[in-house]
Design a protein around this nucleic acid. Structure first.
Lengths: 143, 143
DNA sequence: TTAAGTGCAAAATCTTTGCAAATGT
DNA sequence: ACATTTGCAAAGATTTTGCACTTAA
């Protein structure tokens, strides 16, 4: 077991989730991508080793336990990314800008770009803010 | 034909879309709601007068012609709202904040709240920005 | 008259559920 | 040993497609 796998093993233990080979594969796949990975993408990558239904369940469990978070992109497709260490099962901290490239379809988590603050009308109480920018990413704009 | 219907008739003509009674009903339904209306909501409202499939097609046409715009909420559900006059088939101008109430599920278009500007990393080119705030809306926070 | 819109049936997807077998602790 | 996880089949839900009939212009 290499270092990365070991790290993921500990991650699962820390969240009280059983350490199975499928779950480790999913964590590996997610961590090897830049930004978030779409459900269809992930499905294609893991297939046929991991059953489609099992993947749904793994992602659901991970999300509930605060191991990954889900970002819905502008097409309504679910994308997943590993959480930062301060996510818990009680709440995700995902207050950064997402960038959805319309050329390559990558979804980036721009951790360095914070969502600027703004005022809501009276009596509107914000719990979470999601900001998605669509356009052309650095990789694609250089081609 | 009352004033509102007349207005919608002209709206359809202006976008080179045929004026049918179903299309007028959909426009009426959309305009009678505050903010955007979800596809399932709309389906329930129009049923059984308008067939489910027809509704899909009407919404698709309206979106393509720049009559309505689609906002995907945090659950990945499509919501629709009438466009402001400066939307065309070449691009929607929807640069305001959306608010998704987790209590009543209403999706508000907060036209008065502009999306603040922020800088993207080098070589990322923004085309559109979508900002959705979830939380409790004014109506629900007062109860 | 004729091109576009509509309803119905059916296909194609996407997501969830039930249950028996396999696996982790 | 025992609770959890997994695969498979099947149910549900959502969205798209094909085709005959109807309607707007």
């Amino acid at each position: 077991m290499n270092k990365r796998e070991h790290r993921f093993g500990e991650l699962l233990e820390a969240h009280h989730v059983r350490k199975t080979s499928h779950r480790l594969s999913v964590l590996n796949a997610l961590s090897s991508r830049e930004g978030a990975t779409s459900q269809p993408d992930l499905e294609a990558t893991m297939s046929p080793e991991i059953n489609r239904v099992t993947l749904y369940r793994i992602l659901k469990t991970f999300e509930e336990k605060g191991i990954i978070h889900k970002v819905i992109d502008l097409n309504g497709t679910a994308n997943y990314a590993l959480c930062s260490p301060d996510c818990t099962e009680h709440g995700h901290h995902d207050q950064h800008v997402h960038f959805s490239c319309s050329v390559c379809n990558r979804l980036y988590c721009l951790d360095t770009v914070r969502i600027p603050s703004f005022r809501l009308p009276n009596d509107f109480e914000a719990a979470d803010t999601y900001l998605v920018v669509s356009g052309t990413c650095a990789r694609c704009s250089k081609k």
